[in-house]
């Protein structure tokens, strides 16, 4: 497709999986995947901008179809939060809604056909390399998971106090005997570390694998007319299955966010 030099399966896939990275002067960590940042912000602005437009005409009377749709979404998230978290939900519920909508939008970028989008990126945006699915970038999922992790620590300290939280680190779940402090701390450290890791890598892995399968199916096109049809049929099947994954991963990501923040409010 877009590869100018030799086109083989490896270069095809590598091309599709290359970020548009702007590296700063110091290099290494100080580089930015422009494609991820731009795509995710554009998607967020579209999604939340549309919802904001709905709120401007929101009425408590008979809602319009768009308002009813957004209210359905808000009510859905609200019910999920209420079912898990028994406390002041005014801050947690908007967080959950943001996570769900934004992740859903970013995941949904996976529906766009990879090669047509590659043409779009190359000829409209004039970028040789551009990855369209921000959640297939581990930076995005880690950013979200670490934000939630930060909130978790914040609420733990806010609810239990700094002393209470430290006490909990050393004295639960096994008991407050000084001999058990090390084990308690180890156990809690594993628990705290595994949360953001599993939270972010689950989403990243699912979306990355989905993208790769689309690319592998796209490779069928290189084998001739039969391969094009075969690849198209398989891509259609995978796309339909992917609808489930996209929505399910966004839902799981939201639920884990709620669960983690809710757990931070609980005393052990």
């Amino acid at each position: 497709m877009a590869a100018a030099s030799e086109l083989n399966p490896t270069s095809y896939i590598q091309h599709h999986l290359t970020f548009l990275t702007k590296t700063g002067e110091s290099g290494g960590f100080w580089s930015v995947n422009v494609d991820t940042v731009v795509t995710s912000i554009v998607l967020g602005v579209i999604a939340f901008g549309l919802m904001w437009l709905v709120t401007r005409k929101a009425t408590a009377g008979v809602p319009t179809r768009t308002q009813a749709f957004v209210e359905l979404l808000i009510d859905f998230v609200n019910e999920q939060v209420k079912g898990i978290f028994h406390g002041e939900i005014k801050t947690i519920a908007p967080l959950a809604l943001t996570v769900f909508v934004w992740v859903l939008m970013m995941n949904a970028m996976d529906f766009l056909p990879v090669d047509i989008m590659a043409l779009f990126y190359e000829h409209v945006l004039h970028q040789r390399t551009w990855r369209g699915v921000p959640t297939a970038d581990v930076n995005t999922t880690f950013a979200l998971a670490l934000s939630v992790f930060g909130l978790m620590i914040f609420y733990s300290i806010k609810v239990k106090g700094l002393g209470g939280w430290i006490h909990e680190l050393f004295c639960s779940p096994f008991g407050s005997n000084p001999l058990l402090w090390v084990f308690n701390l180890l156990f809690n450290a594993v628990e705290y570390l595994s949360k953001p890791l599993s939270h972010s890598l689950r989403l990243y892995g699912n979306m990355y694998a989905g993208e790769i399968i689309f690319l592998l199916l796209g490779l069928w096109a290189a084998t001739g007319a039969v391969g094009v049809i075969f690849g198209a049929v398989l891509s259609l099947g995978w796309s339909i299955f992917h609808i489930l994954i996209v929505a399910l991963q966004a839902y799981i990501f939201m639920m884990l966010t709620i669960v983690y923040v809710a757990m931070a409010h609980e005393h052990h």
Partner: peptide, 14 residues
């Protein structure tokens, strides 16, 4: 998968 400044920007956007 390399972690870089994108993470900070995404967190800020979030």
């Amino acid at each position: 998968m390399d972690i870089n400044f994108t993470l900070v920007m995404q967190a800020a956007a979030f």
